[in-house]
Simulated scan of single mutants.
Amino acid sequence: MYNNTFGNIFRLTSFGESHGKAIGGVIDGFPAGISIDEDFIQHELDRRRPGQSALTTARKEADKVEFLSGIYEGVSTGCPIGFVIWNTNQHSNDYDNMKDVFRPSHADYTYTQKYGVRDHRGGGRSSARETIARVVGGALAKLALKQLGVTVTAFTSQVGIYKLDKDYTHYDLSVAEENPVRCPDPEMAKQMGDYIYNIKGEGDTVGGVISCVVKGCPIGLGQPVFGKLHAALGNAMLSINAAKGFEYGQGFGSMNLKGSQQNDLFYNDNGHIALRTNRSGGIQGGISNGEDIYFRVAFKPVATVLMEQPTVDVNGRETVLQARGRHDACVLPRAVPIVEAMTAMTLLDYYLLDRASRLF
């Protein structure tokens, strides 16, 4: 298995399986001299961890990060940053009835066909537990981006049939962390939460959309051909478990507009070039233009449902599977910090690429 490394200059290589001893990673290319707030990094992990509300899986994992290298007296040294999060609360027996069957819409079948072997306990390497390493990498990237004045904020904008009816500029995004759904509209958050709770009671699952907003991004990140910034963000988002779609700016929502209606017009704002609108989502020609970058990521319903479903075993015999164990009914609340993490790592990587490509 290869392609366990993300990034070009800022590079995260993750390792570990959901029911192995640990999940961890090595970060290469992180700048020296960045103050490392380990409490902030742990807080980011706490936002992703299971068992944080009645809407998420009941599994309890402390998810405490232990740094092994690359940090001295609270400051990055420029050396590779190694870290590990020990797995402490696996219930591997919950997966015994899945050992010889293929779970619908999981990676079981494709892994078996490709590698000839798979870890049936929670999906092994294909488990979303691998994203712990991404959150650590993203938290470090956020600390570096903070010095550039760049902020990354994601939030739940749709759960099933319930969705926000205005764009992000109409909401106070800081209140999203005040409810378990992570939606910036408290009234809509309650409806979303009630819906997830009811779906969970049925043993079923539901999907939705996470929106993300980047403020303070410098002009010039990205390349105009194969290194487009929006393509890099799309690649990062679609590498997240259960992600099914990506759109930036007005995306598919502007397909009914004419070019004259879609274009962002320039004007002179007291000697500075500015835009009257930001339908492009902060990226034009594959390069950041200094406006807010905003995009949306669609997540499918969690594939593990706690009800009987027909399937086949490893020998092709038809059978029925009823999953057991502790699973999320909706991935969105816990995926919000993952979306932020992948965004932050992409932006820091492309900032470092931009610096490396310029002589002055």
Results as ranks from 00 to 15, higher is better:
M1T: 08
Y2G: 12
T13A: 13
S18C: 10
A22P: 06
I27R: 00
D28H: 08
G29L: 11
S35C: 15
E44R: 13
D46I: 11
S53Y: 03
L55M: 08
K64P: 10
E73A: 15
E73R: 15
G74Y: 02
G74P: 03
G78W: 02
C79M: 13
P80D: 00
I81C: 04
N93V: 10
D100T: 10
D100K: 12
K114G: 07
Y115R: 05
G116A: 08
G123D: 02
G123R: 06
S126M: 10
E130M: 09
A133W: 03
A133H: 01
T151N: 04
F155T: 05
D167P: 09
D167R: 01
T169P: 10
S174V: 03
V181L: 01
C183F: 06
P184L: 03
M188R: 02
Y197R: 11
K200W: 03
G203I: 11
T205H: 04
V214G: 06
K215C: 11
G220V: 13
Q223N: 13
L229A: 09
L233D: 04
L233M: 14
M237L: 15
L238C: 12
A242Q: 06
A242G: 11
E247P: 05
Y248E: 01
L257T: 14
Q261K: 10
I273C: 12
R276P: 12
S280A: 15
Y294A: 04
Y294N: 00
R296N: 14
F299A: 02
T304V: 05
Q322C: 15
R324A: 09
R324I: 05
G325T: 02
G325N: 02
C330Y: 02
R334V: 08
V339S: 09
V339C: 14
M345E: 07
M345R: 02
L348Y: 05
R355P: 15
R358Y: 14
